[in-house]
Design a protein around this nucleic acid. Sequence first.
DNA 1: TTCTGGTTTGCAATCGATTACAGCCTAAGA
DNA 2: TCTTAGGCTGTAATCGATTGCAAACCAGAA
Lengths: 333, 333
Amino acid sequence: MTFSDLAKQLNVSTATVSRALSRPETVAPATRERVLEVVRRSGYQMNAIARSLRTQSTRTIGIIVSDIRNPFFSAIVKAVEDVARTNGYSVLICNADEDGRNEEVALQLLIERQVSGLIHCSAGANLNLLRILQKKSIPLVDLDRQSGLENVDTVVLDNQLGAALATRHLVDLGHKRVAIISGPKHLSNARTRLDGFRKTLRSAHIISQKKYTEFGDFREQSGRDAAERLLALPTPPSAIFVANNEMMAGALFAIRQRRIKVPRDLSLVGFDDARWAQYSDPPLTVVSQPTEAMGKKAAELLLGRLQGEKLANTIVFEPQLVVRRSTAPPKRK
Amino acid sequence: MTFSDLAKQLNVSTATVSRALSRPETVAPATRERVLEVVRRSGYQMNAIARSLRTQSTRTIGIIVSDIRNPFFSAIVKAVEDVARTNGYSVLICNADEDGRNEEVALQLLIERQVSGLIHCSAGANLNLLRILQKKSIPLVDLDRQSGLENVDTVVLDNQLGAALATRHLVDLGHKRVAIISGPKHLSNARTRLDGFRKTLRSAHIISQKKYTEFGDFREQSGRDAAERLLALPTPPSAIFVANNEMMAGALFAIRQRRIKVPRDLSLVGFDDARWAQYSDPPLTVVSQPTEAMGKKAAELLLGRLQGEKLANTIVFEPQLVVRRSTAPPKRK
DNA sequence: TTCTGGTTTGCAATCGATTACAGCCTAAGA
DNA sequence: TCTTAGGCTGTAATCGATTGCAAACCAGAA
């Protein structure tokens, strides 16, 4: 069923049908009613592909996340989808699985599908493809992780502050042997968190030791491995700051396996307040971020750009320390 | 940058460019190389919209989920996306928020966008729109919840068995006052779970009482409300079977607020083994489902259909009872 | 040289909606 | 009665890639 079929049935031209639907005031009331009636009765469904080709606009926004199962990202996706839908956009979703290669494939695909805009949680892709977006003037919003591209809308947490809050909390409790399980060095948010961690230790006159600095890839398994290495140390840390929730899940696994008591033998601070963090035993002290708000804001920035906004904005959200029961003063030796 | 631009540059026709890319063996080696070289150098990106219009195929699969933040569905989405990607498809995602109206809007949208196929976790939409899909012979896979449409591929859990396992477990522990927080009556999976629950009680000669049967909408808040009602009863239940993980989170909230000790004062069995269920305090006894496998299977069935498979399949997955520490024999009075 | 068969290429229609432009009609004004 | 303006509608081009058909070309056989 196409306009041309309807037009034949109605003895009008496709132009009239099109106008009756998209600019009703330009067609005579009588004709308009006739057209609309037939459209309704026939259950006609517009072909958005054809329309997109002609109008050069897909009203689709692409989103690349690093792991849709991470509650942080699923909350982002949910928020983005909400904003998109209420503005007549749809969402094409791609998973990068924390791998720059996958991200590049995804970018390629989204460009080919002519997305109107892109929300992008970098897994470390090469900048060239992103430059293509810019050349095609497809607006881009960096979310959570900065791609490194200049003049791009950005929504991030103040990661430095977040890490500082966590670290400060541990230091204030009296911990001296403080470890970090950081994210990969090539991701901006991981770097900034590590930075905040180190600065805070330094300002407390604690030397951040190399053996207490572990790097994971933001995924569960790497958190588990890192925790195992830390716990196997001759003098293991008395506190660990784990830089994201997935790695925290992994770390917890290792910790339980060794039957280490939290917080008696080990204090833990996590990053990002996934639901399970508060239900966990013990409930975890974490740095929480306003996830939904960040997703919403990213979508809004994007829509703003699509509606002609010129300037690139950088929005920084504030983290909050949520103290629960996974942190306590260190055991006296 | 279009084929026509490239063609001009190369002094060939657009037909040749097209063929060099999609059926290289049909063009002379020399020309082919010339074309490919220019394509590479110019960074040409195919316009998938135009191609889709011409070929009448978008290679996009739509997915409607009821709540992307529910880890059950995000695991599904992840699995579907994986299978899709490795087969050259993309995924258009829509959120129904457990509301049939939203689902209908989503269906409309996906039809207009000419998705090649649809994976569908019903929130109870009207069947008419789904019939349109069938009329357009767009393959459809019902996942987790049956839409009620005939002759449709289906991937479900054996919900009856799942509920039976849970209930049996409680009964075997000696519980007589067993309550259920069920999902909404119009969803197939909720109904079947309720059914399994009732049948099991009956076979144990326990009368399932109306006051012990609560209905929620599969979302957190409703679980909380339902739990509150149950706990406020003159003789509250000694065990509750909560029919999905979101409502369980809500129920737990209410239970903690009342400082009820689990499992001493109340046994709990959940449905679907979200990550937090095992980290929870106490770790929850749940009926687990092979979520990823279900998502994967759904995607595979869909792709099968897209490749010409004729018969509609119904795949039933087996649930498993995972006994943790939220269940125990009832207190003796 | 002419013909045959095969390879390579181009022409032009096509997918379905949108829209600039032009033409038609009607009614009001001269 | 003749203009003219404005409202309504239709014609046809367009978006960018694909593809059936036909033409052009070439090598080898007669």
